[in-house]
Design a binder for these strands. Structure first.
Length: 324
DNA sequence: AAGTAGATCAACCGCCAAGGG
DNA sequence: ACCCTTGGCGGTTGATCTACT
């Protein structure tokens, strides 16, 4: 166990330099955990430096606080980030950026550290693989118009897998997805909303269009760009139309994300990311979002899950063309 | 079986703001 | 008004785990 006497903050007003020299660092032991938990159970939280001393822990107050908040707190949730949580993280990050603690407030039991780690390991990795900046518009568009709708689709698929419903429909009037673990609810109404414990979190204009998943056809279309597939989605009526998400300035016009391109339109990659069931989605959408034990995982080909070289190359080319 | 690379995540660091003396 | 302590936050590190060769 690493016990260091480093005084990093160069603080010459410490009341007792010897105590500072004795502070432990590194991984917490079981005994330390128990000591901290027992002390807090008896005396409560707060005044972390004092707490650390009185509890007999040779740790800084900061270290105790962090250990308690990120690990020992009884309401800390362990385990994989659920799809609903992933969706919420993407949504809230799009709104607030790296305000991890603020985002964490909407994910009960999840810590800012955990969300931050999730973002860095999963989301930033994808941006890196795509060779684009995580803050670039292209990447944000990819997340907003591809991942997030796909996640909604996945959530629905999971919901359907656990119900006896044979017809799976996302429409303007039905389909609430409730995560009983954390109170998150994704409501696919006329204006889909995300709520947490009945508190409004978000409305998603880009997932407002109704479509029936089982009727979604992925076809090779004459108006596709570069001979790649575009998705033809059946709405709840008999109409079929190509389902494009267009590149708009979200700041100026946040409600006009959804558009239906005319057949003659030749969109660029960032202009035209197809529907969740269409181009790229099978290869792209969930590459790192897949969780081993989710129901759909058991039913899908592994090629659906991970990026392949061809897809990556194509994406990179499209992104490159887009920036030219 | 051993070595290596990549992924994950707990823990630390440095900065900042708030509050009290 | 100033100084000091404390707590909170985002960024970063490094130990450990896992997958691959």
């Amino acid at each position: 166990m690493d016990v260091k006497g480093r005084n990093n903050n160069n603080n010459n007003v410490m009341s007792c330099e010897d105590d500072e020299m004795d502070l432990r660092r590194g991984p917490w032991t079981v005994d330390e955990d128990l000591t901290l938990m027992n002390y807090i159970a008896t005396h409560g939280e707060g005044r972390w430096n004092t707490l650390a001393n009185l509890a007999g822990l040779k740790r800084s107050g900061k270290s105790c606080r962090l250990r308690w908040l990120n690990y020992l707190r009884p309401d800390v949730r362990r385990g994989n980030i659920t799809l609903e949580e992933q969706l919420l993280i993407l949504e809230l990050h799009a709104r607030w950026g790296n305000r991890w603690s603020k985002i964490a407030q909407f994910l009960p039991g999840r810590t800012d550290n955990e969300i931050k780690n999730y973002w860095r390991t999963r989301v930033q990795k994808l941006a890196k693989q795509l060779k684009c900046d995580v803050n670039s518009k292209q990447f944000k568009d990819t997340m907003r118009y591809l991942w997030m709708p796909r996640l909604v689709e996945r959530i629905q698929a999971a919901s359907a897998a656990t119900s006896t419903t044979t017809k799976t429909t996302v429409n303007n009037t039905t389909s609430n997805y409730i995560n009983n673990n954390n109170g998150l609810k994704v409501t696919m109404g006329s204006t889909p909303t995300i709520t947490m414990n009945n508190e409004f979190v978000s409305s998603q204009p880009h997932i407002t269009q109704s479509y029936t998943l089982e009727n979604s056809n992925t076809t090779t279309s004459s108006d596709s760009f570069e001979n790649h597939k575009v998705s033809t989605i059946s709405d709840l009526g008999d109409n079929n139309y190509n389902y494009y998400y267009t590149n708009v300035d979200n700041k100026n016009n946040p409600n006009s994300n959804l558009d239906y391109c005319q057949p003659s339109h030749q969109p660029s990659f960032s202009d035209c990311i197809t529907s969740p069931s269409g181009l790229f989605s099978q290869e792209l959408a969930d590459f790192q979002f897949m969780e081993p034990n989710t129901p759909w995982m058991q039913n899908e080909n592994s090629s659906d899950i991970f990026w392949n070289d061809e897809t990556m190359l194509f994406l990179e080319q499209q992104l490159m063309n887009d920036t030219m």
